[in-house]
């Protein structure tokens, strides 16, 4: 209850970001994550059968398609602005796509954990105080770093160093652009509709517009 009152005023929220989660933070984070999980699952279906044979023949450049699997953490982080939001968002999204049925099974959960932790780490480096475009891009990059490390150990353990470098670079690029920039644009658009009025992220955008 105190959390709700203290973060109602925008200025107060900016000075001391309250690390405690209100129920509305949890539920909206989960709703966004679930929606993202459905997107993950659709992206699994779309990207796998069409591009997979071509991808398999690429020397590491297939990392470029990884971006859409990285955006949940960044999106939830940008909206909710709480410690753990990126991790929670990506993990729930991954669980939803695992429950809907992915090729990767529980490894999807590990992927979600690693991607979320990557984005979370970079948001933490900014002390959970910066949530602009720069932070969004860094979050996407962080998720890409996490995903690269995991993929190269799980899926391509015997690959050449050249492949490893190309794969990590394209994954990080894709994470930065699609997950980072994409989430930032999405949050801005969502804020303009007024749907995020109970969050600092939504009120800031409304104040500017």
């Amino acid at each position: 209850m105190h959390a709700t009152i203290s973060s109602t005023t925008d200025a107060a929220a900016r000075r001391t970001p309250d690390p405690r989660w209100r129920p509305v933070d949890i539920i909206v984070a989960a709703v966004l994550a679930v929606a993202a999980g459905v997107v993950f699952w659709v992206w699994d279906l779309v990207s796998n059968p069409v591009g997979a044979p071509i991808e398999a023949a690429l020397p590491g450049l297939q990392g470029i398609i990884n971006g859409p699997w990285l955006f949940a953490g960044v999106l939830v982080g940008l909206v909710v602005r709480k410690p753990g939001a990126a991790l929670f968002g990506e993990l729930v999204a991954a669980s939803v796509s695992a429950l809907l049925g992915t090729v990767w099974g529980p490894l999807t959960l590990v992927s979600g954990l690693v991607q979320g932790a990557g984005a979370e780490a970079l948001f933490a480096l900014l002390l959970y105080r910066r949530w602009g475009l720069g932070a969004a891009l860094l979050g996407g990059l962080g998720a890409g770093i996490g995903e690269s490390i995991l993929d190269l150990t799980v899926w391509y353990p015997g690959a050449k160093p050249l492949f490893d470098v190309l794969y990590a670079a394209t994954t990080m690029l894709s994470g930065t652009v699609i997950a980072g920039l994409g989430s930032w644009l999405l949050v801005r658009a969502l804020a303009r509709t007024g749907a995020l009025s109970r969050f600092a992220s939504g009120r800031e955008a409304r104040a500017r517009a």
Partner: peptide
Amino acid sequence: VAALLAGITTTLYGV
């Protein structure tokens, strides 16, 4: 299919 494709990638670009 996924296992097969990862195998193809490694065949082409493995150490």
